[in-house]
């Protein structure tokens, strides 16, 4: 009994600690009027979503965020998979260096590398360009993709390739029948992380994407980044971004070992 109450307390505390701030965002998003002194909004409704939709901000931001993210996943995969294949299956000089260097873009604060990118983009006339934002999102997206896929390649027994070849399969057939099925879970995990990364990327988008590329986080920044914070519209926008985020967590829990990939992502 004592043990049970203890477990219950700990679980409740964790759930409450995580959920409470998110619930408050939902309160704000669906509040039409909320006076400072009252505990709950005095009027509930969809006013802020309507305002944002009518102003065109919401539709545009959703379009930008959710078209950029898949493109980032696609290009990150195209760049990462060949390199991950080499690092995961071959041994060569400087392999460890490659593995470790790919970490650095995740560790260097984006604001630091961002001012250099800002200057370069100005030179190239790419400030505010859609594809320019796709490119900067890939800086942080590729490491996640690369690590997940490399780990998947590494876990394949090299004897399988040899077995496949001795059984009469060509190089291409071996690729399709042996590697593709065994590596795809790693690609899936990497894709989910990269997708989440792109949805959430803010600093670099703010630096090189303005004024046109107002992804959801940048749009939220409009409402909270100035001297005056407008909680209600910011919350409405946040809800649009939080819901896919929670779906991603559930997806990860269901289909991939997050403990494994999260560790792999930053190792």
């Amino acid at each position: 009994m004592k043990r049970k109450t203890w477990i219950f307390l700990m679980s409740t505390l964790i759930i409450f600690g995580v959920v409470f701030p998110i619930i408050v965002i939902f309160f704000w998003a669906f509040s039409e009027r909320w006076y400072g002194t009252s505990l709950l909004p005095s009027k509930w409704g969809l006013k802020w979503f309507k305002v944002l939709l009518e102003g065109g901000d919401l539709g545009k931001s959703i379009y930008l965020s959710f078209t950029i993210a898949p493109l980032v996943v696609l290009f990150s995969a195209l760049i990462s998979i060949p390199a991950a294949y080499v690092v995961g299956t071959k041994s060569f000089k400087g392999k460890r260096l490659v593995e470790n260097l790919v970490l650095i873009p995740l560790i260097v604060p984006p604001i630091a590398s961002g001012i250099g990118l800002l200057s370069m983009y100005t030179n190239w006339g790419m400030i505010g360009s859609y594809w320019g934002v796709v490119l900067v999102h890939m800086i942080g997206g590729i490491p996640y993709m690369f690590r997940s896929v490399a780990a998947a390649f590494e876990s394949i027994d090299p004897a399988l390739e040899e077995a496949s070849r001795t059984l009469g399969a060509t190089r291409l057939q071996t690729m399709l029948k042996v590697y593709v099925p065994l590596v795809s879970p790693g690609v899936l995990a990497g894709s989910i992380f990269t997708f989440a990364w792109s949805l959430n990327e803010f600093v670099l988008t703010l630096l090189v994407g303005l004024p046109n590329i107002t992804t959801l986080p940048v749009q939220i920044f409009h409402y909270v980044g100035g001297y005056y914070i407008a909680p209600a519209p910011a919350s409405a926008l946040s809800v649009v971004l939080i819901i896919p985020s929670i779906l991603i967590v559930l997806l990860m829990e269901r289909f991939v070992k997050i403990e494994y990939t999260a560790g792999a992502g930053l190792k």
């Binding site: 965002i25 959430n200 986080p217 967590v249 829990e253």
Partner: peptide, 30 residues
């Protein structure tokens, strides 16, 4: 080990996937 552990282990990871900006702003409102 306890009943409902799966749910708790899924929930505790949610902040990882919430954009920093939103988390910051949520705490500002609190």
């Amino acid at each position: 080990e306890f009943k409902g552990k799966k749910i708790v282990t899924a929930i505790y990871k949610i902040p990882l996937f919430i954009p920093y900006l939103i988390s910051a702003f949520a705490w500002w409102t609190l």
